[in-house]
Design a protein around this nucleic acid. Structure first.
Lengths: 237, 237
DNA sequence: TGCCTGATTTGATCCGCATCAAAGACCGCC
DNA sequence: GGCGGTCTTTGATGCGGATCAAATCAGGCA
């Protein structure tokens, strides 16, 4: 299921005006470099639930996520799934420790990515220490998030997990689209469960409990954070 | 508790003959670069249970672990602990997403590290794309391990967790000290529990069960892997 | 508008691991 | 070699979240 659609060169929509430039790996490049990079990348579109790359596939491209949300996940042979992260615009995808992908990535809703061939990108970054440092910075940030998530998975209760997720998700959305009391949740309850190491029933019950306690308001496709302070307290504790 | 002891310049024990050179970040450097780097680093020793750096402390150094084993962990305000990894010789420590450490690091037994001031190391790496790429490689490998560990924490049973830990630990030791049927476990049962998101009692019971099943043999400070195939099957499933 | 389908919520019950408690095993030290 | 402290193992019990089951909701489409 990798029906991608090329919708245009980034130069049709020049990198210098890219909305997510400051968030992405491209923040390390000046306008001249950006013009050069533009020739190497192309925009590709994915519809809801399409897979961009799968675990164990040979890595052949890097991607900048431009629009949309993606789920990054690993499967066990018996079908158990762990979502290792959600990607938002500005995230850089495709780095792997070996020649194969460590995890799978699908679009949650419709998504637009900027694709680079791995070899061309490697050649471009070869003698650009600023870009290498930027990639490093993003990788280390990811690692730090992964470590925070290990604490959540290993040591927190269901209620703490859900509250931490909601607060963290809201904070990430702020960087992309600015603050808002309404928090969109494009992913399904099953996705949230697989991210938090819970079942869908426990996630649903915990949402209901938080709503009864006046912490959140449940709406289709989003929640309202009625009592952010209380949610943050649950997330910190 | 940061009673470090300077025991000598790396040039007293030249980098070119460093036992862990090929495993470490230094594998990216040639002999001339290594001689230059030697002036920037110094060997520091830590006794069992001493803290090398603590969560939230300002980052001021990078380290190469030369000898010994370290535990890397995060604490919640109420004292719950999650060990995010164990470091072995060759591991590079001190990278952080912000100016502060994301986690704490203690020596488990006695440990020797090669310390570099962050600023001096940053200056040295500034225009060395090979070194930057090497750091990248190590960071991405860490990230990949972290993602594997999330699957373990979120989706595996106690028995799978313990078996996966034993097999993975053995595999890591092989890279450092070569293959062996006896697997040293320098860390305590509590450390293992906090790594796997379990309690000490569950870890102990699971060890006992694996021994009853003929998979392992429990010895003080180590285990014997009697039936590696069965342990690997538990780890894979 | 009303049906059909998948997602979500709610309910009842069960089980794996946590918790509480106590008995061994190991180690350093005198 | 004996003693005290810590770490590990074992036992008894309880609970949080999983599992099984069914009702309700939301959204797409005729």
């Amino acid at each position: 299921m990798t029906m991608s659609l090329v919708t245009g060169e980034p130069n049709g929509h020049p990198c210098t005006e890219c909305a997510i430039r400051r968030l992405s790996v491209c923040a390390a490049l000046d306008n001249a470099e950006l013009r050069e990079l533009a020739h190497l990348g192309r925009h590709v579109h994915f519809a809801a639930c399409e897979t961009v790359f799968a675990q164990e596939e040979i890595t052949s491209s890097f991607y900048n996520l431009l629009e949309g949300v993606m789920r990054l996940y690993k499967l066990l042979p018996d079908g158990r799934r762990q979502i290792v992260g959600f990607a938002l615009p500005g995230d850089f995808l495709g780095l792997a420790a070996s020649a194969r992908h460590n995890f799978s990535a699908d679009a949650i809703g419709s998504a637009m990515l900027c694709q680079f061939s791995k070899s061309a990108f490697a050649r471009f970054s070869e003698d650009r220490p600023d870009l290498l440092r930027r990639i490093n910075e993003l990788a280390v940030r990811e690692l730090s998030q992964a470590q925070d998530h290990m604490v959540l998975l290993g040591r927190r209760s269901a209620e703490e997990k859900v509250a931490t997720f909601l607060v963290g998700w809201r904070d990430r959305l702020v960087r992309v689209s600015g603050p808002s009391q309404r928090v969109p949740l494009p992913m399904s309850r099953q996705d949230i469960a697989d991210y938090l190491g819970l079942t869908i029933e426990t996630v649903s019950r915990t949402f209901t409990k938080l709503e009864r306690d006046g912490v959140i308001e449940i709406m289709p496709g989003s929640i309202g954070l009625l009592d952010p302070a209380r949610a943050e307290a649950l997330a910190a504790a």
